[in-house]
């Protein structure tokens, strides 16, 4: 798959900028990493652009950029669907264990279904089920091409307090991933190791709260504990991220920014208390959403 040339990326960016200039703004994300239980009303459409920056390893210079362009619609008042096109960029220089690279590549596609079981406004709490099958072709940390299929599943809980000015959400995510392609592409030390590397389970428990500071403005904090289980058999690592978030919502568009440094990781390496082989020192995410009425 060829990388996207800067000129083409510029055209896409320009088109999105025009979209941004148009007067556009239900499943509005108050948090960067944690989902709420609400869904889009039936027949409504929303477009998102996500930008996630993953910055810093134990040494050298490292930045990974995950870009998601999403279109979402309400199939019913309780069921919403979304489609994602993902790209990924890396700038890696002098990081132990990784090849230097500067790349911008097509990453893959994904689809999403989210079903709301309970509404925080009607039932006292919100509860939703989420499933997102996807195809990925660029390895998250190294930027190397490694095709895989994944199935992200999520249980979403939401509870509002203080006349709905404080929104608290909890997500539990299980995401099995299966490598596709030849064993030679994935194996490193023999067939047994190759088989082990061909499937993995990512698990994440995340929670966050956001408080309405003023009309349109929300601020809060969120926490995510992420671990991975190669071959679905043993926990390989665990990394905990914690940080603030800020949200602005207008009539037809909104943005959310979260900045989450890694606060604890296992097993650690060159940097005490941080897991920097599979994760980075900092994850920052900006989401911009537009509601088409």
């Amino acid at each position: 798959m060829p990388a996207v040339r800067p000129a083409r990326a510029g055209l896409v960016a320009g088109a999105l900028a025009l979209l941004a200039a148009a007067p556009l703004a239900a499943d509005e994300n108050l948090l960067g990493s944690v989902y709420g239980a609400e869904t889009l009303p039936r027949g409504r459409w929303e477009a998102y652009q996500w930008v996630t920056a993953r910055l810093g390893k134990a040494d050298g210079t490292y930045s990974g950029w995950d870009l998601r362009t999403e279109v979402e619609t309400g199939l019913t008042d309780r069921l919403q669907a979304a489609f994602y096109v993902n790209t990924r960029a890396h700038d890696i220089h002098g990081v132990t264990g990784l090849e230097d690279r500067s790349s911008f590549q097509f990453q893959g596609v994904a689809a999403e279904l989210k079903y709301r079981l309970k509404s925080p406004y009607l039932d006292g709490y919100g509860l939703a089920l989420y499933v997102e099958p996807g195809y990925n072709r660029v390895e998250r940390v190294s930027g190397e091409v490694e095709e895989e299929l994944e199935l992200e599943t999520k249980l979403i809980f939401q509870r509002n307090f203080l006349d709905d000015t404080l929104v608290w959400s909890v997500n539990y995510t299980l995401e099995p991933e299966w490598a596709i392609g030849t064993q030679e592409e994935h194996g490193e030390a023999g067939e047994e190791h190759a088989e082990e590397a061909r499937r993995e389970l990512a698990e994440e428990l995340s929670t966050g709260a956001s408080y309405r500071l003023a009309p349109r403005w929300f601020a809060g904090a969120e926490l995510a504990a992420h671990s991975e289980w190669p071959d679905f058999s043993h926990r390989e690592h665990l990394a905990v991220f914690l940080g603030p978030n800020l949200h602005y919502g207008a009539e037809r568009w909104w943005w959310t920014l979260s900045v989450m440094p890694q606060v604890w990781g296992w097993p650690d390496g060159q940097v005490s208390g941080l897991q920097l082989d599979e994760h980075e020192r900092l994850e920052a995410r900006l989401k911009v959403g537009y509601n088409f009425r």
């Binding site: 800067p6 990326a9 960016a13 999105l16 900028a17 950029w65």
Partner: peptide
């Protein structure tokens, strides 16, 4: 990777 930065323009 600089191309990726252009994607930051809209947000």
């Amino acid at each position: 990777a600089r191309a990726a930065l252009l994607w930051l323009a809209p947000p």
